[in-house]
């Protein structure tokens, strides 16, 4: 066998191994999707959206409280987390730059991003739930916000960093003060990236169960008061799926399906924003 033939053989072996791995990965992905969609669609009907939770065996039982609770928890967490994350990311990229403080913040938020989410739940339990004496929507919001900030902070930092420094200099050279350079030139240049980062941050916290389990806890009935325990799709899904009742298990599938579709559409929206930007 010549050297060239040998290289071709090795190339073929590597190619088939990597193709096989890709096929295996895709196989499981589509299997999950198939099971999710078939069970989810099977369980999905108008009642799911129209009714609150009910004891097993009741016809009129649904996920209304969990849908509303999920939207409130994720919505309020985003209202707090997005501005904080974007502003902190702006500080890192535009003011802190390579300073020691900025680098320390970057390192800490990288560590926070990889922290197990249940640990953040436990932390919030200790600082919010225990002093208040009961579970509450605010505790859940706190946990989700803590998870969200480092994600948005780091993507904002990275995306602003991608704006060429010559563009900033050009604005300064026209006599622009720094805050106007950031607001009018840097943000504009990084708009698509920052927006995508925000969406990915929202999608990430929308799928979290562990930080909510012992913070916002759960509620089988409709509650919009953040001072009280609040239902979420994820915790409801966990409770229903692990229950012995078949109709509750079905609702669990419906919750799983709705949640996945929600997160999938946020991700697709993020892709579309990025593609539009590139297409220009």
């Amino acid at each position: 066998m010549t050297a060239v033939e040998k290289r071709k053989l090795v190339s073929k072996i590597v190619l088939s191994l990597s193709s096989l791995s890709a096929a295996l990965g895709l196989f499981f992905l589509f299997w999950i999707l198939y099971v999710l969609v078939s069970n989810g669609l099977d369980a999905l009907n108008w009642n799911v959206f129209a009714f609150e939770g009910a004891p097993p065996g009741y016809e009129e039982s649904g996920l209304k409280q969990a849908l509303v609770g999920q939207l409130i928890l994720v919505g309020v967490a985003s209202l707090i987390g997005v501005p904080l994350g974007v502003l902190a990311g702006t500080y890192l990229s535009e003011y802190g730059q390579r300073s020691k403080l900025a680098e320390t913040i970057r390192d800490i938020s990288d560590i926070m991003m990889s922290a197990p989410s249940i640990v953040i739940g436990a932390f919030v339990y200790a600082i919010v739930v225990a002093p208040m004496g009961h579970f509450s929507g605010w505790a859940g919001v706190t946990a989700l916000t803590i998870m969200m900030i480092p994600i948005i902070l780091r993507t904002t930092d990275d995306m602003l960093h991608l704006v060429p420094s010559t563009l900033r200099e050009a604005a300064f050279a026209l006599g622009a003060p720094k805050y106007k350079v950031i607001l009018q030139v840097v943000y504009r240049g990084a708009k698509a990236g920052v927006l995508t980062g925000i969406l990915l941050g929202v999608a990430r916290i929308a799928g979290e169960t562990a930080p909510l389990l012992f913070t916002s806890f759960n509620d089988n009935f409709m509650n919009t008061d953040l001072n009280e325990p609040m239902a979420s799709l994820t915790v409801t899904m966990y409770n229903y799926a692990t229950s012995p009742y078949e109709d509750w298990q079905k609702l669990g599938w419906a919750a799983a399906f709705i949640l996945s579709m929600f997160i999938l559409s946020i991700n697709i929206l993020g892709r579309i924003i990025l593609l539009k930007k590139k297409g220009k």
Partner: peptide
């Protein structure tokens, strides 16, 4: 000072906005 002494850079530095807004920026 920078409104009195302007600068043109090595690479074009058009801002991500319309032609009009670019010139109107300063």
């Amino acid at each position: 000072l920078r409104t009195q002494i302007g600068m043109i850079f090595q690479k074009p530095t058009a801002f991500p906005m319309s032609i009009f807004d670019n010139v109107a920026y300063g």
